[in-house]
Write a protein that binds this DNA or RNA. Sequence first.
DNA 1: CTGTTAGCGCTTTCAG
DNA 2: CTGAAAGCGCTAACAG
Lengths: 348, 348
Amino acid sequence: MALPDTSKRVTLTQVARAAGVSVMTASYTYNQPSRVSDESRAKVLAAAAELGYAGPDPRGRSLRRGASRALGVVLGEHLSYAFEDPQAAAFLAGIADVCAEHAYGMTILPITGAADDVARIRSAAVDAFILWTTTEDDPVVAAVRAMKRPAVVHGGPAVPDLGLVSIDNRAAARAVGEVVFAHTNRPAIVSFPLTRDREGGIISGPDTTRVLFPVTRHRLEGYRQAAEAAGLAWKDVIVAVCPRNDPSEGERAAAMLLASPEPPDAIAAMSDQLASGILQAAHTAHHGVPTDLAVTGWDDAPIAADLGLTTVAQSLRAQGSACAQAALGQEAPLNSPWSIVRRRTTRP
Amino acid sequence: MALPDTSKRVTLTQVARAAGVSVMTASYTYNQPSRVSDESRAKVLAAAAELGYAGPDPRGRSLRRGASRALGVVLGEHLSYAFEDPQAAAFLAGIADVCAEHAYGMTILPITGAADDVARIRSAAVDAFILWTTTEDDPVVAAVRAMKRPAVVHGGPAVPDLGLVSIDNRAAARAVGEVVFAHTNRPAIVSFPLTRDREGGIISGPDTTRVLFPVTRHRLEGYRQAAEAAGLAWKDVIVAVCPRNDPSEGERAAAMLLASPEPPDAIAAMSDQLASGILQAAHTAHHGVPTDLAVTGWDDAPIAADLGLTTVAQSLRAQGSACAQAALGQEAPLNSPWSIVRRRTTRP
DNA sequence: CTGTTAGCGCTTTCAG
DNA sequence: CTGAAAGCGCTAACAG
């Protein structure tokens, strides 16, 4: 392959010399063209074209200006899954909208879970950070704080000095829980991971105070409030934990639950992705929805409408935009709106 | 919101002074700790902790080193769709894998189609570029060339001085075309856009030389070869163009085709996403697959296996990794592998 | 093992 | 409208 040789890049000084003007005139030609006479500007541009000047080098410029015009986005341990998760994709699209509008770059900081994540954050030339939902003890959060730059967390945790953009997950979970657990005897929840090692499994009435992902913890607390309001005991609520946000995980979890001697008659899922797998499993196991089994999702993704799924509506895209605006120091809605969308997978 | 004040950042010089050592000793403490005595290192780290030093500033470092340790990724005009397209997501994940491995950042450069795209590329502090499939006349390609940095194009176009990572789209299209058009009278193609304005529509036997996206052009040429090899005239091949790579677009196009007086009996789609919509439309219109209608997709995404879809297998993730490696100046496979996966949507 | 010197490429400041 | 000076924060190269 014959890729261009980076070392050959021409500098602004060389262009100025070739044009027979000072460096500043050359600089103004690029940054404040109106300050330069037509004649000088023409000379500079001609010299630049002649030498093949690629424009002011961003590195020198950002050092001098003290700003890189880029936002850093930290996506959490499982980077490859982040791109596969439609909600994460929507979130990124929201950030991208704002970046495009403000002519900012958007630097994705790959996190692997290894110790060198911190080094990658330290060496990122970005003006502000956005963190996708994580745990309170995530070392990445500490690393971002140490950078002393503006930073906004999406979902949680709430961290001193950092912004937080989120819906009220507890209230939303309670609201959707009241719908799905109504007139129910054997409630279940299909949940995101409770711990950073993301292990799956089935437990009942888990100790929510030990759940390290705040978003997941708040949702469990909300579901719990709803269950108890419906006269159900938290210790009787089955929680199936899925390591990944994927329909196949939801299907596997639901298949297991439905095969038990006392299968659940209501399942609240933490995403529409998981819920779609649950509906699939219900279909396979010949459980009627919502007659035998009520199901709710979360997000109101396009698939929810297709499936007639009752769910919590929120806009990850709008939340991504809000994070980016807040990171850029603008006014932005920190408390994002949500609502319950009732469809056919719950009883009226 | 109380985000930290960027201006307060401490410099390495201040740390050195506070520690009572030279700046270089402080610098070595961070970059080559083994070169520094335990005692000095401790003093430096203590001073850094005391002052709240955030570590060497990436801006000064990249200017001095002449490298930013970041890869720029240019995703094409419709940035928000890029995140929604599962294949683009897989491609990004492949890039991210390599970036994580080499401790590089990954800067997504939002492209809107407006004139300022070029400015955003010029001001990106990245060491190399990766371009997602685009047209030959895309101004962004020219802008990237002008940067005089290593750059790799995925899919196409082939550009002098830039690398190219791709499968042989023409050969793959011919191969899958031979499967789907076998024993067929009324062939159709559901295609990606032919022009940069991405307008949809239905035409027959288009002039492929006028298709500006090389990937799409090569696929059409391959399909054409297959159709002609099967004794069909290119002018009789219907091509439905979908503005976006989305199942609903495929469904809409197929519904229209199937409602015509002489509906197609074979449809080759340029993605599994489009093909899944086509299968949905066939189901709705009571066309048996593959009896009344043979269908093929492209990509071998997870959904293809679920649907029993005959398709072209390729790994966008591997291609993303190859692009990133090539951009970093390493050996990488430029001709990516592909194969035909025969399943139930075509006749044996 | 530590320190001095020089300068990466650019733009802010201020003086013509 | 143009230019000279200074320095952003850091590290390669070399000398002690």
